[in-house]
């Protein structure tokens, strides 16, 4: 049984100019994606491929125009707001910009405590906060710090702890490392892998960078202009891409040993 599956998922944005005129932008068309339990898959595409729209649909920040989403084989597309709230406990999203995703007015502790309170955590909240910080390799001394006292990598780790506090089954990471220094990227990637291995959380890793995606994912979906153009095991796609677009993405992945 797959944990998350989309079927013919499409999204059209309509932007109105005045009363009558409207532009239709087809952001996604007929997306079929499957996430198995405990799997880490990648969705790769350049900007405009619709990968971020897909992420926002999966966490109900947007509504799909047509198609269905199945969570543990239950069709959740027509959920009402109460059901959506319950579903959100199961799926969390990590944002691209760690400088924007933490509230500057609140401490690290607050960021982790709130989801614990909201999900009515039974045990000792204090211990749980330390445990979560430990999970993301931050020591408890960080509880009292505010976001502006942290580096980008530390902020992203705090955000991961916040997302994990909800105790989700699925994590959607939208470009979680693209704003970070190169040397910090590995830290976050290792962390994602550890979250998958130790907590059994299924992860969708969304990026434009084949370097990072090739190092941690099992399977890949390559998206171009709102469509999935290639899918399969990461190794076989990297070594033997079938589409010109995928080849270009591999070609463009930055490599210090390859002169431009």
């Amino acid at each position: 049984m797959s944990i998350l599956r989309t079927e013919n998922l499409s999204k059209t944005f309509i932007s109105r100019h005045g009363l009558v005129a409207a532009d239709k932008i087809q952001a996604l068309s007929n997306i079929d994606i499957t996430l198995e339990n405990g799997e880490l898959i990648g969705i790769v595409g350049a900007s405009g491929s619709g990968k971020s729209t897909l992420a926002k649909i999966l966490v109900f920040l947007y509504k799909p125009t047509s198609g269905n989403i199945y969570f543990m084989d239950e069709n959740i597309t027509k959920y009402n707001s109460k059901q959506i709230k319950r579903y959100r406990r199961e799926i969390q999203m990590v944002f691209q910009d760690p400088y924007a995703s933490l509230d500057p007015n609140h401490s690290v502790e607050w960021h982790i405590k709130r989801p614990l309170i909201l999900s009515k955590y039974k045990g000792n909240i204090d211990d749980r906060i330390n445990e979560l910080l430990n999970m993301v390799t931050l020591n408890p001394g960080y509880r009292a710090k505010f976001p502006h006292q942290l580096s980008g990598g530390q902020r992203q780790r705090v955000y991961l702890a916040r997302a994990l506090a909800v105790n989700p089954k699925i994590l959607i990471a939208d470009e979680p490392v693209s704003m970070l220094d190169v040397s910090v990227r590995i830290e976050i990637l290792t962390l994602l892998q550890r979250i998958k291995d130790k907590l059994g959380i299924s992860i969708i890793y969304i990026t434009h960078d084949l370097n990072t995606v090739s190092m941690i994912t099992d399977r890949l979906y390559v998206m171009q202009e709102g469509k999935v153009v290639e899918e399969g095991y990461t190794d076989s796609i990297i070594n033997n891409p079938s589409k010109e677009y995928t080849r270009k993405l591999i070609e463009a992945a930055p490599n210090p040993y390859k002169r431009i």
Binding site: S151, V182, S183, I186, E187, L189, D209, N211, M215, N255
Partner: peptide, 24 residues
């Protein structure tokens, strides 16, 4: 040397030893 080793690259395996300890 340590920075070069920490660059994510196609074909590399993820390894904790790639991380530079501490922060800037």
């Amino acid at each position: 040397y340590q920075l070069m080793k920490s660059i994510p690259m196609i074909g590399h395996k993820l390894d904790r030893s790639m991380i530079i300890k501490g922060s800037t």
